[in-house]
């Protein structure tokens, strides 16, 4: 379903959490709300679901205003991080719960619950108690139960962070597959960059109750709007330089730009640095740490910039080696350094 949020403000007793936030979402889209803990992303999710009262702004679902609609009438279903299966009910009754609320007859709702459990590969667990299931199984049941409610909008609240690494991968794939199968519009609230980058159609990046940037994973990663946004994805290196007469100049680098004259920092990520070429950017090996699947090498440029680069396969380097590396920049991102600093 199409979701529109206009100028949304939410405040708790302790102060404002969301400051006039706006966001649009298309039908069938998978959007991740990404941000550090405490940035207000969970509050935004709760405001959409109607769990927290909003102080200002509007929320529309398919053009219909739902800002004042009670929780149970919104059709926005949340899968919480802690699953929240009902401990007094069996797995089948948990999944059948939304249907029971819709007044579906008992036989029919249990039949549908069985079907949905099959979909999430939990067939045969109908009569178990939630407490008898593992974390991953509980997550599957929670998903099946959410699907039973036929959500207009499915909200996943840090849904995978309670699971261990392997299981997380499996659940992500399951969610993407279910999204296609049931043609759902999904919002994933997460602080996990990799998760957001790999799963979403678009990412909404949040800091301190504000939406900083919204775009495809590629845009958000390669064209961050600020250093803060860039740093959130990590592995950033900044080369200080200046723009004069339409040219950015830094040690070893020179390219034309449309930016105004002044001091800038050029955003670089390790993939800009190629080691094997005989380039004009000398770096010294500082540390080498083997991590199994790859080896991380810390390299210090002559300009003092520290690079972390991962290599796969055998690394024939020694600490102290000096290499002639090269910098290749395809889409340069420049952040202005304010002269006040």
């Amino acid at each position: 379903m199409k979701l529109e949020i206009e100028n949304l403000s939410v405040a708790y007793d302790t102060g404002a959490v969301l400051h006039g936030l706006s966001l649009q979402m298309e039908e069938g889209e998978f959007l991740s709300i990404l941000g550090p803990s405490g940035c207000g992303k969970t509050t935004l999710m709760k405001a959409i679901a109607g769990i927290v009262p909003v102080q200002g702004g509007h929320i529309y679902l398919d053009g219909q205003e739902i800002t004042a609609l009670p929780i149970h009438k919104r059709g926005t279903v949340v899968v919480f991080q802690d699953m929240r299966l009902f401990p007094h009910k069996t797995v089948a009754e948990n999944v059948a719960f939304p249907l029971k609320m819709q007044g579906v007859a008992k036989g029919e709702r249990l039949r549908r619950a069985r079907e949905l459990l099959q979909t999430v590969q939990m067939g045969g667990y109908e009569n178990r108690r939630p407490s008898e299931l593992s974390g991953g199984q509980q997550q599957r049941v929670a998903l099946a139960r959410a699907l039973a409610a036929k959500p207009r909008l499915l909200l996943l609240d840090e849904a995978f962070s309670a699971l261990d690494e392997n299981l997380r991968e499996e659940m992500r794939n399951l969610v993407l597959q279910l999204k296609e199968e049931f043609q759902m519009t999904v919002i994933l609230v997460t602080h996990d960059r990799e998760e957001a980058l790999s799963m979403s159609d678009r990412i909404a990046l949040m800091f301190e109750g504000r939406l900083i940037q919204c775009g495809t994973p590629w845009q958000v990663y390669t064209q961050p709007v600020s250093r803060q946004a860039a740093d959130y994805f990590g592995n950033c290196v900044y080369l200080p330089g200046t723009v004069e007469q339409g040219m950015f100049t830094a040690p070893g680098i020179r390219f034309p730009t449309e930016k105004a004259e002044g001091n800038y920092e050029l955003l670089l990520r390790p993939d800009c640095l190629s080691i094997l070429d005989a380039g004009d950017y000398p770096v010294t090996v500082e540390t080498i740490s083997f991590r199994g699947s790859d080896t991380v090498v810390h390299l210090r440029g002559t300009d003092g910039v520290l690079w972390k680069k991962a290599f796969t396969g055998k690394v024939n380097l020694q600490v102290g080696d000096t290499l002639r590396a090269a910098l290749t920049i395809e889409n340069p991102v420049l952040f202005e350094v304010s002269s006040a600093q």
Partner: peptide, 11 residues
């Protein structure tokens, strides 16, 4: 928490 979950599911 469970009550919230139930309401989100339409109760």
């Amino acid at each position: 928490k469970l009550e919230q979950q139930a309401m989100v599911l339409g109760a």
